[in-house]
């Protein structure tokens, strides 16, 4: 695969005034030259391949936006090299803009009072898109979502979901090599989120566009990204396939079982009983955590040492179980632990 984006030791520093508090401080601030430098992005290197869907994750203020702004050419890096399709983004902004598309979940780039189709026509002229390419894309878009009801509606009358769908389509109209999606599903319902996931996946597979997604919604990441990069405090702390992330945590599974008996009143008795039970039959006890709440037993099992079914088999001999549930560890909880520094 060929590389679309190459980032080498990229850093971005912001000059910030050391502000003093209070009214006296505010006056002193006017004349102060006491600056400090804040590293928004610190020595980040990565490669992004063409046709890939990459998720960039990070807490608020981690530096995601700064990274994206540098890739789109709005911000100039303080140090390091950034090359997109062989170009340096901030040096030739107009040329770079022809190769990228951008969608902001919270800000529309379509003309607010115009019907959507008219915005598309203006975009066609701005990017000098050929009639053939335009027709072909519109037909393809129409296969993905029925456009008829959307296209003649002014953008300001659209629901948020419709607007984001149109914004995404508009960003693909000029066949860009890279599309940046900045929190595209923010504030949307599950149904529309699902539509957007499908839309992005089919646009990506048909047009081989590189898609770079920033989001806080793990649902987006699980649905469309194969690889994720996690940024924290301006540094890259994870960069790999998404399924490998789960392996970091060992093959833990959570077993939930509900006891169908009113006789049991005390949850702590249940816990000690289960622990005794497992201790008796299997000697390795330290890899299990057992909790009990309102007759719901929760056991986290390390599948490398014992299978969930074996544990289930054990406890259902002792207790009358009527409901069970087996949960994989979610990406969200893994990432949360990464932020807390418990992993890597």
């Amino acid at each position: 695969m060929d590389k679309t984006i190459e980032i080498n030791n990229l850093s971005k520093e912001y000059k910030v005034l050391n502000r003093k508090e209070g009214f006296k401080g505010a006056i002193l601030n006017l004349f102060s030259k006491d600056y400090k430098y804040i590293k928004a992005i610190n020595n980040v290197s990565m490669e992004i391949f063409s046709g890939e869907i990459l998720g960039i994750l990070g807490r608020n203020g981690a530096g995601k936006s700064t990274l994206i702004k540098m890739m789109t050419g709005v911000l100039k890096p303080s140090a390091g090299a950034l090359s997109i399709n062989g170009n340096t983004p901030f040096k030739n902004r107009k040329q770079h803009a022809l190769n990228i598309g951008i969608v902001f979940g919270q800000r529309s780039q379509l003309w607010w009072s115009l019907p959507c189709i008219e915005s598309f026509k203006i975009i066609k002229e701005i990017y000098s898109i050929n009639d053939d390419v335009y027709e072909e894309n519109m037909n393809f878009f129409n296969e993905l979502i029925p456009l008829n009801e959307l296209m003649n509606k002014p953008v300001r009358l659209m629901s948020l979901g419709q607007r984001v769908l149109c914004d995404i389509l508009a960003s693909f109209l000029h066949n860009p090599k890279i599309v940046f999606l900045d929190e595209p599903t923010i504030g949307l319902d599950i149904d529309v989120k699902d539509k957007i996931h499908k839309l992005i996946l089919s646009l990506n597979s048909k047009k081989k566009t590189t898609v770079i997604l920033t989001t806080h919604d793990m649902g987006d990441v699980d649905a469309i990204c194969k690889r994720i990069v996690i940024i924290d405090n301006g540094e890259k702390i994870y960069d790999d396939k998404i399924y490998k992330l789960k392996k970091y945590f060992g093959p833990n599974k959570t077993l939930l079982a509900h006891i169908n008996s009113n006789k049991i009143r005390d949850d702590s008795v249940v816990i000690t009983n289960i622990k005794k039970l497992i201790d008796k039959h299997i000697q390795l006890i330290d890899y299990l955590s057992v909790e009990c709440n309102n007759r719901w037993i929760k056991i986290v099992v390390d599948e490398n040492q014992i299978s969930v079914l074996k544990v289930l088999n054990l406890i259902q001999k002792e207790f009358d179980i009527d409901k069970i549930e087996i949960k994989e560890i979610s990406t969200e909880s893994v990432i949360k632990k990464i932020y807390e520094g418990k992993c890597l």
């Binding site: 107009k94 040329q95 803009a97 022809l98 902001f104 800000r107 701005i126 990017y127």
Partner: peptide
Amino acid sequence: GDFITYCFRPI
């Protein structure tokens, strides 16, 4: 911050 949306067109 809405001005940012004007920064990405090849024009």
